[in-house]
Design a protein around this nucleic acid. Sequence first.
DNA 1: TCATGACATCGACGATAGTCGATATTGACA
DNA 2: TGTCAATATCGACTATCGTCGATGTCATGA
Lengths: 114, 114
Amino acid sequence: MTEIEITDVTAACGTSLVGEPLSEAAAADLAHTMKALADPARLRLLSIVAASAGGEACVCDLTGPVGLSQPTVSHHLKVLTEAGFLSRSKRGTWAYYALVPGALDRVSRALGAA
Amino acid sequence: MTEIEITDVTAACGTSLVGEPLSEAAAADLAHTMKALADPARLRLLSIVAASAGGEACVCDLTGPVGLSQPTVSHHLKVLTEAGFLSRSKRGTWAYYALVPGALDRVSRALGAA
DNA sequence: TCATGACATCGACGATAGTCGATATTGACA
DNA sequence: TGTCAATATCGACTATCGTCGATGTCATGA
């Protein structure tokens, strides 16, 4: 992989699990998106960011609550960002992560919810 | 793990990602449920079962479309069944798998959708 | 310019997951 | 009872993932 993929979650938009059989490509895209959510540390990071004041949090605010090292937290945030669930804005020395609006809703719809 | 877990998907019911920070246990439960959906083969199996006539399909109808060996398909179906997404009913020599109604909807709601 | 602090990247390790061939199990049928 | 067909389980291999310590990068401020 030579380039960073962004807004991966949009790739699974329009496809629905319960409609017709997923193509091989659509299944791979959706699986890649779901894989970003298939980790307890990443789910907790998402929920903590969502519950933070201003809807954003920096890495230093996240390492404590999840009980993981700074490199590990940074890695998980990168996975979530590349999957299209988080956005990153660097201000000074700090990197603030925020939920991408509608990203989780797109996954919900891909799962067949109306 | 000495016992088979059933209706795993119900464990994540009532919790929402965007509400308040997930507890360690809730995150582990939801991650386990999402992990069952984080594989292209399993997503295709779910969609094929959903699109089958009568809403159910036997293993022999599934090995061909997904292009995997019979033991591998059987393994994926077991994961989906233990996660609460599929139900298994054996009639004669055949094992028919069907979608568990509402299972995917519960995941959608856990993701924060209204 | 140099030191400090926040974050990202690297390299490595152990654990887990997906896949297969071989084999066991179970039900149907002659 | 014996054979065959459908499915499940087992054992092994490979690949991928989560985690960490060490190090690199960059902005701030003395």
